[in-house]
Design a protein around this nucleic acid. Structure first.
Lengths: 250, 250
DNA sequence: ATTTCGCCCTGATCTAGGTCAACTCGGGCG
DNA sequence: CGCCCGAGTTGACCTAGATCAGGGCGAAAT
């Protein structure tokens, strides 16, 4: 999990006593807090976490087939994962915002099954998987957290797979983005689309032209206001309604 | 995880010394073997596993929203998982053959996010999740196995989500079924489709009529021979070729 | 300031697959 | 044995979204 150009910056844990804040954005801090910890565990955490980056736009974090060594939480920026098929068409599998974890689908084959690329400036919290799973053996909360994260991703992948119209898919995409930003304390109704129209298209299984047209129609219907990559959700109710079938209580 | 009509038959472990064979079909026996075990662990296994069923065709194993208590390995039969949307359309999420594990996507919300129904006569190996995850704290191999299973399901879900033609999807479906049967020692080229055309359609995001037509065309092209629910793959090479884009090295 | 280049938008057409309707067939049941 | 019923098939259309082609426009490079 590193490019030639990436510059690893191991940071570990400060010695000033607030060690449990070892990574404010990452999905594991809560688990570690919940679990309590002792001196020996803290030593483990110290070697466990490593902040890497920044990766800049277009830089790859890992590539399909790379040996799996670590999962990583996004600290800042957006990561896109994708695969390329025989005919060279790109299939985008997901976008990962701050706080979300990449690499979980690599565990089963011990290789990353897809490519991960930075869409803007990205900093990661890297966790050696052997180390974190060893640690999970001693911290029930951490094991639980890992199970939850994995289980969550199964559900996430199932969303895409349904049989939905372009409008439904787009609405679900926007609402999901909005909720994820909101969960991290960003504005739920006004944010940047860090990915291109083409990326969105490949993610939603639509043509880029269709993305344009749906945006246009949503805007004409006063559901959103979109300008370049800046978007505002102006009629959440309606959007949620459209997204409902796709998201179903998620 | 039980219907009014299901009849739980706890079986636990025989006292005759070959305790590690506590369930020959389920995905965890290998992990337990690998990990070694001691007397106290065996006591845990004893309360851990429970064979339930048979569920008969159409009988539900769990329903959307049911509180999550256990995962289960299919011992025999086929399980279909699905959700129903606002308009009453059914979205089939997966088919589970002997040896495969259902309920993994319920961990994150502590509720089953979908329905599970028996397509034929089904017997399950039920594992209380609190118990098995507690046990995993002491058996590294078991924890590893659980991580792998979860990770595998993420990848599986991603397959459906790609942007593929009806032919590609169908070929991938058949090849996948074939491989899964083969892995369990059944014939890879001749097996029963335990699900209806409509189920296949809902799974592949196609209309039932399209399933019929693709079957017909595949048969005319000598790729398969299908009669009622019995199918034979007569040109695996070609089918694998079609499926290639979808499966990509899987 | 101008060029260039990569996104993005928009209109005109095309098509894979959906929809609708009619028919077949086999299996359960009186 | 004949009836019924639900699953499957087949053919005739239709439509959502893809594809193709052309053009605009902002940001970086020259």
């Amino acid at each position: 999990m590193s490019d030639a150009t990436s510059r690893p910056r191991p940071v570990g844990i400060a010695d000033d006593g607030d060690a449990y804040h070892f990574c404010s954005t990452c999905a594991f801090s809560a688990a570690c807090l919940d679990s309590g910890y002792d001196k020996s565990q803290l030593r483990d955490l110290h070697v466990l976490v490593e902040h890497i980056g920044p990766f800049h736009e277009g830089e790859h974090i890992f590539r399909e087939g790379d040996p799996f060594t670590a999962i990583a939480a996004v600290r800042s920026g957006t990561v896109k994962t994708y695969v390329t098929d025989h005919e060279g068409r790109e299939h985008v599998q997901g976008f990962f915002l701050p706080g979300e974890v990449i690499g979980l689908n690599a565990i089963s084959q011990a290789r990353y099954p897809s490519n991960a690329v930075a869409l803007d400036s990205v900093i990661l919290c890297r966790f050696s998987f052997p180390n974190i799973s060893a640690l999970a053996m001693r911290m029930p909360g951490l094991q639980q957290q890992l199970f939850k994260l994995l289980s969550l991703d199964i559900g996430k992948a199932a969303l895409l797979s349904g049989n939905f119209s372009a409008d439904e898919r787009m609405a679900a995409f926007l609402i999901t983005l909005s909720r994820r930003y909101a969960a991290r304390g960003f504005s739920p109704n006004r944010f940047m689309l860090t990915m291109s129209r083409t990326d969105i298209a490949n993610y939603l299984r639509l043509a880029p032209e269709t993305i344009s047209r749906v945006f246009r129609r949503f805007q004409d219907d006063k559901l959103i206001h979109v300008e370049r990559r800046e978007i505002e959700l102006t009629d959440r109710k309606q959007l949620e309604g459209l997204a409902d079938n796709v998201l179903r209580g998620t």
